[in-house]
């Protein structure tokens, strides 16, 4: 199983779109840095992300949310907010990390 990371805002780059297209069902997607903007419940990518989450588990880094003033309550349902320790644990559970940047 792969851990896919996305670190770019979907409003600026296609990294998230490509990640959703090319991550196999069952894989994990972690939003980091500007990637966390994708998870805004009222944002234009909410529906696409939720669709992708039917077969994938979605995570976001708490520090990156805080730095951008994003409240976890304002994210789409089902996103698991993790800290850096959680990131490391997640990476060790996966065979490899593929970063879409």
């Amino acid at each position: 199983m792969l851990l896919h990371t996305v670190n770019k805002s979907p409003f600026e780059k296609n990294s998230l779109d490509t990640c959703l297209r090319l991550s196999a069902p069952g894989s994990c997607i972690l939003l980091i840095e500007d990637g966390v903007y994708a998870a805004l419940a009222g944002g234009a990518f909410a529906a696409q992300l939720q669709d992708g989450m039917r077969a994938r588990k979605l995570y976001a880094i708490d520090a990156d949310l805080q730095a951008r003033g994003l409240d976890p309550a304002g994210l789409i349902d089902g996103v698991e907010v993790i800290d850096y320790r959680g990131f490391v644990e997640l990476a060790t559970r996966c065979d490899q990390v593929q970063s879409w940047f």
């Binding site: 199983m1 792969l2 090319l22 991550s23 196999a24 894989s27 490899q96 593929q98 970063s99 940047f101």
Partner: peptide, 17 residues
């Protein structure tokens, strides 16, 4: 196609971007 490529990506030992 995207699904076949996603499957291939899963089966690599090393991915370089």
């Amino acid at each position: 196609g995207k699904d076949a490529l996603a499957d291939l990506i899963e089966r690599q030992d090393v991915l370089l971007n």
